[in-house]
Design a protein around this nucleic acid. Structure first.
Lengths: 112, 112
DNA sequence: CTAGAATGATCTATAAATAGGTCATATTAC
DNA sequence: GTAATATGACCTATTTATAGATCATTCTAG
């Protein structure tokens, strides 16, 4: 009962995915790592690394981020310790506020 | 002949995925959008949006980035136009240089 | 030039993600 | 309080991604 297939994506999402792939590719080349090297370290196949670098939308986020980490990319432009602080901040963001401060639903336009 | 299953991920990749999910969640709540709203706009199921917000590694990168865009997140901290410039830069990064500047393979440590 | 290596693409069987439903539990509105 | 809504979790059928192989091409080293 899944969808008939053929997803559509916004331009922004497509370009962001392509940018991630290109950045991974460039970082890998700069570090003189082969696709096979990265695939083995990430525990995925050579073809998957290739598709991630191509920016294919269907790749799993786990594999993509793992590969990104292996080639030395810092997601969110943050070092591990910094990223951990961000995590704590986001985790606590709404736990203190009562949810009732969020009142009426508002229409938001798709401005991307 | 796929792998027997049960992937393992680095801590950095796991935390980056969790941070993305939390940030999406907080952005959605701030905009007073329901999970169902976002799911419908993204063309995915309610459960998938939920899993993305939980930071599950198996979600597709396309779905995750689409949802992120819908709740107003700017991946790579870039507006659409800026992201497009980044894309161009990354695309051209190595096309000018001869590949022979990259000489011997170097050992790189897994420092994350 | 030739030999070797890396890349990029395609194919098939299998594993995994997803849709879409249901249900239980908050949470909010009344 | 009750009703309505949102969330979170679970299940199953189906779609999709992935592993692993092969092959053609491009790049590199000699």
């Amino acid at each position: 009962m899944a969808k008939p297939a053929q997803r559509s994506y916004s331009r922004y999402a497509r370009e962001a995915t392509e940018l991630l792939g290109l950045t991974i590719h460039n970082a890998r080349v700069e570090r003189d790592l082969t696709v096979a090297d990265v695939a083995e370290r990430a525990g995925v196949s050579r073809g998957l690394v290739h598709r991630i670098e191509k920016g294919e939308m269907g790749s799993s986020i786990g594999a993509a981020f793992e590969v990104a980490a292996i080639v030395g990319l810092r997601l969110f432009e943050a070092e591990p310790a910094t990223l951990r602080r961000y995590l704590s901040l986001e985790r606590d963001k709404f736990t203190l506020l009562p949810k009732s401060v969020r009142k009426g639903r508002t229409k938001v336009k798709d401005d991307f």
